[in-house]
């Protein structure tokens, strides 16, 4: 087994930590552009980690360029980083296009809750009157009226969502402007 002289530079390790930490923080945000920034930071962190894994810097890895006693740096790590950078670039461009499309459709690029989440939330809202102790509040309305009011609110929310969705769907792209 080859023993690699691999003691990493502390600065690089710290940089990896900061990049990944900031990346994760941004990844947890709602708008897609911030998520994208998080992904870019994270991928830079991962790339830097590959560089660290390749060992310390040395002479340029071109044979005959350095005296035989000098250690060359590892070209494989750099080749892998280069590949990873290209891949991240392509995916970033795609995510940007998606954020732009989302902005075209909705006026913002926030990632919506998934369908199951929304369904569970809706069920919870529908069931809500059964769990709220309406007797405790003196509002002058009968329980039935209060329940009806709550129910309307739910319907209203559903209706608003439906309208929004239709507005989103109605805005079909022209044949020429879909993602190519």
């Amino acid at each position: 087994m080859i023993v690699l002289e691999n003691t990493p530079s502390l600065v690089l390790v710290l940089a990896v930590g900061v990049l990944c930490g900031a990346g994760v923080y941004l990844l947890l945000e709602r708008p897609l552009t911030r998520v994208l920034l998080g992904i870019i930071l994270l991928s830079n962190g991962a790339n830097l980690m590959l560089l660290v894994a390749g060992g310390r810097a040395g002479a340029s890895p071109i044979v005959g360029n350095a005296p035989p006693t000098v250690r060359m740096s590892d070209p494989l790590a750099q080749a892998m980083i280069l590949t990873a950078i290209v891949i991240t670039l392509a995916l970033s461009a795609f995510i940007l296009a998606m954020a732009y499309r989302s902005w075209q459709l909705h006026g913002h690029d926030e990632v919506a809750d998934d369908v199951e989440d929304r369904r569970v939330a809706r069920q919870a809202a529908v069931n809500e009157p059964a769990f709220v102790d309406t007797d405790a509040a003196e509002t002058g309305e009968t329980l039935d009226e209060e329940a009806a009011g709550l129910y309307d609110e739910v319907l209203e929310r559903a209706e608003r969502e439906r309208v929004e969705r239709e507005r989103g769907d109605g805005d079909e792209p022209e044949p020429g402007e879909g993602p190519r």
Partner: peptide, 20 residues
């Protein structure tokens, strides 16, 4: 995300972020 409708862009955003 073929066609880029609202529903597919939503699903696609989740998908691509998770897989990336």
């Amino acid at each position: 995300t073929l066609g880029g409708t609202a529903e597919r862009v939503r699903a696609g955003s989740v998908y691509i972020v998770v897989t990336v």
